[in-house]
Amino acid sequence: MSALLLRDLRLALRAGGGFGLGLAFFLIVTVMVPFSVGPQSSLLESIAPGVLWLGALLACLLSLDRLLALDWEDGSLDLLATAPLPLESVVTIKALAHWITTGLPLVLAAPVLGVLLNLPGPGYGWLVISLTLGTPALSVIGTFGAALTVGLKRGGLLLSLLVLPLYVPTLIFGAEVARRGAAGMETTTPLLMLAGITAAAVALLPFASAAVLRVNLR
């Protein structure tokens, strides 16, 4: 299991593996926002938590089509399916590798980008906490979407169409935590809901992902 994880991480970090693309996308989206809504700091301050959450979510989404596609193309997915490791573990590890290479850098970059958007002082901590709790759910849900569309030629757009509605609850509660935190309000309820969604998604969705992957591999 750890061998698979290390292999995925090495492949992602290697040149051309796409590591850093999500991060660069997050950066550019954040930089574009003031150009589109205007530079008033009061406006930026109020939309900063939501914009940062949306940016992180889109950066996550964009890196999903590479999650299984490379292994599909070179046939290593077929090998993994026949390996003694159950497919449920394989997809969990894929999601974990995706989170480490995409979600975690986004979490670390978010406070830096928050400066650009005048994120209010108490917001930084809550932003990091909410993203840390929420991005694993994004990776796991995204793995499900990637498993659904893995065999398709132009699966990328379809993948976004399938995954975005599934991201809605995570986005709502995650951004709510960051927004309430930035405004100095009570955050316990959305935080618990966010944690609940992540826990449930991590625990249950790998079974669905493995099931659809088996269908696609047959």
């Binding site: 599934l166 809605v168 609850p169 709510e176 969705l205």
Partner: peptide, 17 residues
């Protein structure tokens, strides 16, 4: 099946939001 669960979840999330 997965969508049903998430649609239901969205319903509550939206209510809250």
């Amino acid at each position: 099946m997965v969508g049903s669960v998430f649609a239901l979840l969205s319903r509550y999330a939206v209510n809250f939001w």
